[in-house]
Design a protein around this nucleic acid. Structure first.
Length: 261
DNA sequence: TTTACTGTTAGGAC
DNA sequence: TGTCCTAACAGTAA
């Protein structure tokens, strides 16, 4: 379930279990329609070690000091696992890095929307993708410039990786719910106070989810994440959670306290 | 059997 | 030129 916090949890898993181990080879699962590094690219990594990781928005990177970076995107349903010698192979593994000693780094992806690729420069990659600042790094002024001035639905602005990298459907809904803003409200109709509240809300929500290692059950009971169902009671007022489509994405909100334009 | 889905992106509309 | 919106991607699970 990968948005920024899930990707950060995945990055940590790599940092904790897959660094400073010599890469011996690779294993491929059922990989039709999955973009993976070519045999030539894989050969560049054999004998090297990952020594560092990086994450920008929903994009994850593992690299050595001088060599190329392995870039992983989890898509809609991907995840990362690290296993020790003798552990069972997880389901839906598309690609594994095999380390000396039998440890493995696995890329799981049931729906095959993710990818693994080799890149030479993280900075160039971010520039080519035209990604906005990471949602946990952006400052309030930059947030107000891009999100606060967007002309379309505020939710669509939050979801745009070119404006702000890392926020996905669930946490966009959560931030709008907690700040009482209708997801269809146009960004440039928000007051500067509302934009500032939204900025603080996005950051505190993402940070809180990161702090739980993306374990939703540890999040407060009154968050929307636990009430994403049409007809549920709102936890903030006596309204009712309502489902509607905004910018082509399923959205849950409470018409009671999430004021429109 | 049908429907919906937490991400990304090409192509079209304005 | 820029910004926004929709549809499509593939597979699974309810």
């Amino acid at each position: 379930m990968p948005e920024l916090p899930e990707c950060e949890a995945a990055r940590r898993r790599i940092a904790n279990g897959a660094l400073h181990r010599t890469i011996e080879g690779f294993s491929l699962g059922e990989v039709s329609h999955v973009e993976l590094p070519s045999k030539t690219e894989r050969a560049r990594l054999i004998g090297t070690q990952f020594t560092r990781t990086h994450r920008h928005g929903k994009y994850i990177f593992a690299g050595s000091n001088n060599g190329p970076w392995l870039h992983i995107h989890l898509g809609m349903a991907g995840s990362i696992r690290v296993t020790d010698a003798g552990d069972d192979l997880p389901d839906y593994v598309r690609f594994s890095v095999n380390f000396e000693g039998g440890n493995q780094l696995h890329f799981r992806d049931p729906r095959k929307f993710g990818l693994v690729r080799l890149i030479d420069s993280v900075e160039d990659f971010i520039a080519e993708k035209d990604l906005g600042p990471d949602a946990l790094e952006i400052g309030d002024n930059a947030f107000a410039e891009t999100i606060g001035k967007s002309r379309g639905a505020i939710k669509s602005a939050l979801l745009s990786q070119k404006k702000l990298a890392g926020v996905g459907n669930l946490w966009a809904d959560e931030a709008l719910y907690q700040t009482g803003i209708d997801p269809e409200r146009k960004g440039d109709t928000l007051t500067s106070d509302q934009v500032r509240e939204l900025y603080k809300s996005v950051r505190s929500i993402l940070q809180a989810v990161v702090d739980t290692d993306a374990t939703y059950s540890k999040l407060p009971e009154d968050w929307l994440i636990h009430h994403r169902a049409d007809g549920d009671d709102c936890t903030r007022c006596d309204g009712t959670i309502t489902k509607k489509t905004v910018g082509g994405r399923t959205s849950y909100h409470c018409p009671g306290h999430q004021a429109g334009a």
